[in-house]
Amino acid sequence: MLNLHGYGMRLFEGALVTIELAVLSLVIAVLFGLMTASAKLSGNRMLHLLATLYTTLIRGVPDLVLMMLFFFGGQTLVNSLSDAVYARFGVDFFININPFVAGVLTIGLIFGAYMGETFRGAIQSVEKGQVEAAAACGMSRSLIFRRVKFPLMMSHALPGLSNNWQVLLKTTALVSIIGLSDMVRVATQASKATFEPFTFMLFVGAVYLILTSFSEWIFKRLRLKYHAGYVGAAND
């Protein structure tokens, strides 16, 4: 049977790191995405330009390069900052960028750019009439957003959201390269130590497959729930 050579526990911990990383990054990505979408739809030229610059740059450069840039580059930036503070004020401090935090922020930032497009499309596909009907009932702006615009937007955004989540989940594998002890890194170390790469890589691959299949199932259920209003044709 499957022999993990005592790496089972570490692989399990690695899997937890992967999941935590993915979920926290998703939260950041959704926040960035909502901000980007509203900036692009705000009608403010400056905001629109900034958001466009952000999405273009992020989506034009590989995730791994951005990760290395933020992680390694961020560390030197912090280092030279602390050097300068020491030189000027004689205060000595040292900040070590936590790879987990860096990973979450970087992945969140990257996927925020993709989420931005998802949300923008979703907001635009909310029919004008739905909002007008709410306004015509005397609803305030915030009430319209909360009760009508947001739920309708979410139902339009779900397919894109589910897609982005799947890609994000797989992208977390890249943090093994910048030194985070996720599932993939544990598997790489185990492969090298035991000379059994097939065992460990196939195992981790299978875990990813389970995770992606499981989340696909969840999203399918969510879509059914949120699309309740859209299923079924007119029957008179």
Binding site: G129, E132, A133, A136, G138, M139, S140, P151, L152, G229
Partner: peptide, 25 residues
Amino acid sequence: NDRHVQWMRSRVAMVFQNFNLWAHM
């Protein structure tokens, strides 16, 4: 005054050509 408009709209109801029933409810 937005609140004034909202009050007015709550007194004047509208029926639309395309119904505009909220799709998610």
